[in-house]
Amino acid sequence: MKSLHDKSEGTASASASLDRLFELSEVLGSMMERGVAEHGLTRARAGLLWALFHDGSMTQRALAARLQVTPRNVTGLLDALEADGLVARAAHPTDRRATLVSLTEPGRTLTAGLRGGRDALALELFGDMPAAQLAAIQDGLETVIARLHAIDRISS
């Protein structure tokens, strides 16, 4: 049976861990903001490009669902990205009501560059870390992320 002392130590340790995650989130968020701004992007626009880079061409509705934003929000993002020559919209080949969104060649080049920056940071952070330590970090983060998704679903 856990004593009150054991429980308070566990709470303190859990709170300290969450504080570290908040700090990590702030540092990574700030780095992401600066990184995408160097390319003339916002995080929202970069997220849209990243989705197309990883998942390929898709409809505006699918993009909205993938990014968990409204279709109107996606339209605004696409207007700006299309004006910058990074995405192209075209009629869907089989659904005349839908618009298909694709990366242009400059859009693919830009997102490949962003991926290269991400890969370089990953190597800097984790390249010399022992495999067991890296696996423990990944396992712990998977658990935390799954729990956060579960909490978020309950709250929504």
Rank of each mutant, 00 (worst) to 15 (best):
L28N: 09
S13D: 14
A51M: 06
L77H: 04
L28Y: 11
E33A: 14
S3F: 00
T104M: 09
V36K: 04
D152N: 03
M58Q: 15
E38T: 07
A122K: 06
I137Y: 11
H92L: 12
G116K: 04
D139C: 00
A132N: 03
S102Q: 08
L148E: 06
L141F: 02
L123E: 10
I154C: 03
R66I: 02
F53C: 02
L121Q: 09
V87L: 01
H54R: 15
D6P: 00
H54Q: 13
E33Q: 13
W50D: 13
R147F: 05
L48Y: 00
V87A: 01
L21I: 10
L134A: 10
A132T: 06
D119W: 04
A132M: 01
E105P: 09
T109G: 05
E124Y: 08
E23N: 12
A65F: 07
H149S: 06
T104I: 08
E82K: 06
T143M: 05
P93D: 12
A46H: 00
G10F: 10
L18M: 13
M31V: 15
G113R: 09
D84Y: 00
L125C: 11
L141S: 00
I137Q: 06
S57L: 03
A136R: 13
L141V: 02
V101M: 05
S3D: 03
T104A: 08
T75F: 07
A112K: 12
S102R: 14
R147C: 02
S8W: 10
E23K: 14
G47P: 01
Q68F: 07
V101N: 04
F22N: 12
E82W: 00
L28G: 05
R89W: 06
T59V: 05
V101P: 07
F22L: 15
G35Q: 08
D95K: 11
L77W: 04
L110F: 01
S8K: 13
V36F: 02
L28H: 10
A136V: 01
A12K: 15
L103E: 11
I154F: 05
R97N: 12
A132E: 11
G127W: 09
R43M: 12
G29T: 11
V87D: 02
L77C: 03
T94A: 15
I145V: 15
G35Y: 03
L24K: 13
E38R: 15
A51V: 12
A88I: 10
P106T: 12
L48H: 02
R43V: 14
V74F: 04
R66E: 13
R66H: 08
T70F: 02
A135G: 03
M129I: 09
D55N: 13
D152G: 02
H149G: 01
A64G: 08
T143L: 11
T143E: 12
F126Q: 05
G113A: 06
V74S: 07
L77T: 00
